[in-house]
Amino acid sequence: MATPVDPDFRARLAALNDKFAATVPATLDKIRAALALCVAGGGQPPQDALHQLHEVLHGVAGSAGTFGFTVFGQEARRIEQMVRAVLNGQGAWAPVVPEVEKLLAWAARDAKASHYD
């Protein structure tokens, strides 16, 4: 087996994973706040609120897997795509809300879990 160029690589990666894990509660708060803005008026959410929700989900989708939160990232990506469809006028908003709520509840229990239920 080849010796890594950087012998401290695994230690630094573990530190980054820990740092990401520490941000999960704040990230969930951001998702929760963006969802609240989306549902505040009832009916179709304002575009800026949808953009905010999309942005935070996109951030999770893009980084979670790198730091060992694979399922969290996959589910965020799936819901992000639902939000994007709403933004583009090609999807319904109503199914998004329970999906975001389910993601929030699941991630609050264990965002690093390997199964999504």
Rank of each mutant, 00 (worst) to 15 (best):
D29Y: 15
A61M: 05
L53G: 02
V86S: 04
A36R: 13
F69N: 01
A40D: 05
G73A: 09
A49N: 15
V24D: 02
V83I: 06
A76L: 03
A92G: 13
T3Q: 13
F69C: 02
A40F: 02
R32G: 11
I79V: 11
V5T: 12
A33W: 00
P25A: 11
A61I: 03
F9R: 13
S63T: 14
G62Q: 04
L87A: 01
G41A: 10
A22Y: 15
V24T: 02
V60S: 02
L103A: 06
I31V: 07
E101F: 01
E80H: 15
A108G: 08
V60N: 08
L13F: 10
W93S: 04
Q44A: 14
M1D: 15
A76F: 12
A111H: 12
T70C: 05
P7Y: 04
P95R: 01
Y116V: 00
A92T: 08
Q74M: 03
D117A: 15
Q52R: 06
V5Q: 14
K19Q: 08
F9M: 05
A92R: 05
E75Q: 05
R78L: 04
H58V: 00
A76S: 12
Q81S: 07
A21R: 10
A61D: 04
G62F: 10
A26G: 10
A94E: 09
P98Q: 07
A108H: 12
A15Y: 12
P25R: 09
T66A: 07
A34Y: 00
V96E: 11
V24E: 07
